[in-house]
Structures are given as structure tokens and as C-alpha cells.
Nucleic acid binder design. Structure first.
Lengths: 145, 145
DNA sequence: GTCAGTGCAAAGCTTTTGCAGCGCG
DNA sequence: CGCGCTGCAAAAGCTTTGCACTGAC
């Protein structure tokens, strides 16, 4: 079952109707898989002739986030979204300060340590964000500038 | 040497003049130590009769962030700031979904794992953010709502 | 005296909200 | 055939910028 199918099932299960705008947002997120801002979703849909109102993009995203079907990450003060794997698997991001390149990683050890930290704090941690910032391999090989 | 003194020295070393507004922002950050938004800085200064224009708060913060004297963390789409320890020591944050309570933690193991991840990606990681979200001990003891 | 620093007001972005109409179920 | 979904436009934050003025060096 694809993520899009999973999401559609969840939406229907929680009593939401199907509509053109949300379907388009869902399909785009499923195709892209990586971090997209609301504006990027709007622009990409418009570019492929499947225009959707920006407000509807925000509403679709908000709903999907509430159902934990997408994961939200703030990048430079802008919210970006990506499909959340229903199995609970997830990854984190490293962003290059210089060229903006985005790298994705996952690390079981990291997850384990974060779990321990949450337990130590007495927090029932439902979610966590980890973002690394620095120079990617290409950029750090070049003189700073 | 206090953080405020350290920051003043850095500012002067990098050719910046001293001015009323930035001094007030610096002093407040030094006193509070924890995450503050630009608006909160502005309000708290006004409340103590040391009013500073909101634009000046933003300009002071931006400069301090560029010099790595403060650390920026995005909380719910709003940028918050706190003094950055010159020794490189730093902590991370856990935020309660329900009551908004903020907890602070540090964990050498976490830092170690993040270092390994950065190395594996070939990133020269200069900075990283970790935010845990969930229910704090008090809130998770209560029925959801 | 020069030019960084400052306050105010206006503009820019991202995100949310109000409202009328359409269409899924 | 009701109510949720949608688009548009207006509004509501947060943040940046333009400009004239003040004050540090």
C-alpha cells in the first residue's frame, strides 16, 4: 500500500470527504517525498496545470499534519512538509549553509539516545526534530565564501 | 567573564559601535538565559521602562546570531533566541504539546552520536538543533484533552 | 565630522480566516 | 440535499527595509 493510499484511507476513516484540492496536494507529496513548503506545493501544482488555491494547500497540510500523515520541519523560518511513513520509520535532515543542499539520514543509535533523553525528562515524546547545519562535502572542500 | 562581557568584546572586536538599544537587548538576554522571541524581548524591555524599538531588537538579534553569540531556535514558527555559551557547551529543548512548558537538557551521548552522523555524511557540521515534542510529566499524567 | 546605530512606519512573507458557492456522500 | 471542501480576498502575525536623525568614536 502506498503512502497516498494509506493517507486516503485515514482521511476517509476519520470522516473526511474527498475533494479535488486535497487529492492534488496528496498526490504531489507522494510523488516528491521530500520537504516542500506550502508555496512550493502551490507553485508546482500550478506549473502542471493542476492549480489549487494556496489556502487549500494550507488547509490540506494542516489536516494531514494533525492526522500525523505528514511531518513538519521548519527550515529558515518556513514550514516544510513531507510524507510520514506509517510504519513509524523516519529520517532527519542536514542542510548546507552555503549551497542549500539537503541531505537525509537515519540513525537507530540517534533514535535510541533521543528515547532515553525523553524518558529521563519524564516526557511522553511523540515527535522530534533534528536538523544539522553546516557545510556539505562539496562546499567544505572549497575555500570559504 | 560573563556572557554579556564576552559578547561586548566580540562586538567591539568586529568593529561595531556600542549603542543603547543593543546594550539593552544584550543585558536582557544575559539576565534571562532562556529562549526569548523578538516580541518578548521588546515587551520585557518596555515593561521595565527601557523601551527599545522592535526593529532594533531584530537588528541586534540578527547581528548576534551572525557572530554566533546567540543561538536561534524556531518554536511554532516563531524564532526564539538564547545566549550561546562561548565554550561551545550547549543544551537542547523539549516542549510540551499541551501546556507549552519548556524543558532543557544536555546529553554528551547525543552530541557524540550527532558528531558521528555528521562525519558519516561528510558534512562539516557547525550547528544542530534538536527539539523534542510531546506531553510533559504533569500533562501525560492527566487524561488527554 | 562621519557613519553605525536607532525609532518609526511601511512593506514583505508566511499563514490564517471569512464567506459564498460547489459537489461529495 | 446537507455539510464539508474550495477559491478568493482580506486579515493577522512575524520579520525586514527605507529613511531621517542621533550619537559613538
Amino acid at each position: 500500500m502506498t503512502w497516498v493510499e494509506h493517507a486516503q484511507r485515514e482521511l476517509s476513516r476519520t470522516g473526511h470527504r474527498s475533494g479535488g484540492a486535497r487529492e492534488e496536494v496528496l498526490a504531489l507529496l507522494g510523488r516528491q517525498g521530500c520537504l516542500l513548503s506550502a508555496q512550493e506545493i502551490h507553485d508546482q501544482l500550478r506549473a502542471t496545470g493542476r492549480s489549487v488555491g494556496l489556502a487549500s494547500v494550507y488547509r490540506a497540510i494542516e489536516l494531514l499534519a494533525n492526522l500525523k500523515l505528514v511531518h513538519r520541519v521548519d527550515v529558515d523560518g518556513t514550514a516544510c512538509y513531507e510524507p510520514a511513513d506509517p510504519s513509524g520509520d523516519h529520517h532527519h535532515h542536514a542542510i548546507c549553509d552555503r549551497c542549500g543542499k539537503l541531505a537525509v539520514f537515519e540513525d537507530p543509535e540517534l533514535e535510541r539516545v533521543l528515547g532515553l533523553v525523553g524518558a529521563r525528562l519524564g516526557y511522553d515524546v511523540g515527535d522530534h526534530d533534528v536538523v544539522l547545519r553546516g557545510a556539505c562535502q562539496d562546499c567544505s572542500a572549497q575555500p570559504a565564501g
